[in-house]
Amino acid sequence: MTSTTPPDVAARVEALIPRFRLTRLLNQDQAGRRISLLGTIDSQPGVLVAERAAFATDDDHLSSFSTSLIGIKNLGANDIYAWFLASTALDEDQPPDLKLNLIYPCTDKHVKKYSAQGLRVVTETPEIYAKYIRPYMQQQRVQGRLNWVFNIIEGRTEQEDVIYREHGEEGFLLLPDLNWDRKTIPSLHLLGLVERRDIWSVRDLKRSHITWIKHMRDKLLDSTVKIYPNLDKDQLKLYVHYQPTYYHFHIHIVHVALEAGNTQATGKALGLDNIISQLENLQGDDNAGMDDVSLTYHLGEASDIWEKIYLPLKEGGKVEI
């Protein structure tokens, strides 16, 4: 980035930074990527805000990116997924400054998910869900894309990470989400996985499940503040995704200070308490459920659901799942 500051002014202010003496940390936000520091320069108070710069995206830097990392430490591995901490610093004594996720071998679906793409807002009616979306979900489930979930549920992987667990037909477990670095509390992100396999998404929840959902909510909150005692329950928010990344019902538990990106945005995240309230106010008996309502959400233009279902519906073409 080219500076427009006159050279003499630039030299004067650049010389201030090495003279900054820390008094205390004021804040840490952007999921730990930005810090605000209070300090002094020549006995005068000053605030220094430091934010990690954007990654260089030229071919030379990207080609050498993976080989330039040091201190790579694995945090966990399950099926095709693995996650790590690593450092770009030359000093191995410096704390890691990168969180890495590796998907290997990946599929075309992963490539689409992580590619830059436009977004579209769609409204999924009960009819669209029953005729197109539910069969698509079934197709995805039989392709083995839930192996990593079943590895956890069946006790083959990540058992040392399980924070809380209840077994049985209405069993569930709590563990860190693979996108969390396991230490930065303001960016805390945990995952509640249900053991039962008949609930694929929020669409399968019915009035008859209300007591169970409330029990899960309470236990997930209790367990989180027990293992992280500096947290209070009202510092946590619980939500589910629709459409979810994978079709096995799960609940996200995050610190309320975690800055909302696309995964927490309206049109992607549904608050758990709002879902409970919606179920309680549905007309009908205990079989009334979330498959009876319309849901509006956004999709990437490269996603299968947009390309195979909503785009053909928009253009009056034939839907082929």
Rank of each mutant, 00 (worst) to 15 (best):
T2V: 07
T2Y: 11
S3E: 03
S3V: 01
V9G: 04
A11N: 14
R12S: 15
A15M: 13
R19V: 01
R21A: 10
R24T: 05
R24F: 11
L26N: 03
G32H: 06
I35W: 05
S36L: 05
L37C: 04
D42Y: 09
P45M: 04
E51K: 10
R52W: 07
A53K: 12
D58C: 08
F65R: 01
T67M: 13
L69H: 10
I72C: 13
A77C: 06
Y81P: 02
Y81R: 07
W83C: 05
D97R: 03
L98G: 03
L98W: 04
L100H: 00
Y104G: 07
Y104W: 15
C106V: 12
K109F: 12
H110W: 12
V111T: 13
S115A: 15
A116I: 10
Q117R: 13
R120V: 14
V121C: 05
V121D: 06
T125G: 04
T125A: 06
Y132R: 09
Y132P: 02
R134W: 11
M137L: 15
M137C: 14
Q138D: 14
Q139R: 03
G144N: 00
L146D: 06
V149M: 13
N151H: 12
N151M: 07
I153K: 10
T157C: 08
E158M: 12
E158S: 05
D161P: 06
I163E: 10
I163L: 13
Y164L: 11
R165W: 01
E166P: 03
H167W: 08
G171S: 09
F172K: 00
L173M: 10
L178K: 04
D181H: 01
L188E: 03
L190R: 01
V194D: 00
E195A: 14
R197Y: 10
V202C: 12
L205R: 00
S208G: 02
I210H: 08
T211N: 07
T211G: 08
W212Y: 10
I213D: 01
S223Q: 05
I227A: 00
I227P: 00
N230E: 12
D232V: 09
K233I: 13
K233Q: 15
Y239R: 04
Q243Y: 15
F249R: 00
I253A: 09
E259S: 11
A260V: 14
G261N: 08
G267N: 05
N274A: 08
I275K: 00
I276Y: 10
G284H: 01
V293M: 03
S294W: 10
T296L: 03
T296R: 09
H298A: 07
S303Q: 05
Y310T: 00
L311D: 09
P312M: 07
P312A: 09
P312R: 05
E320F: 06
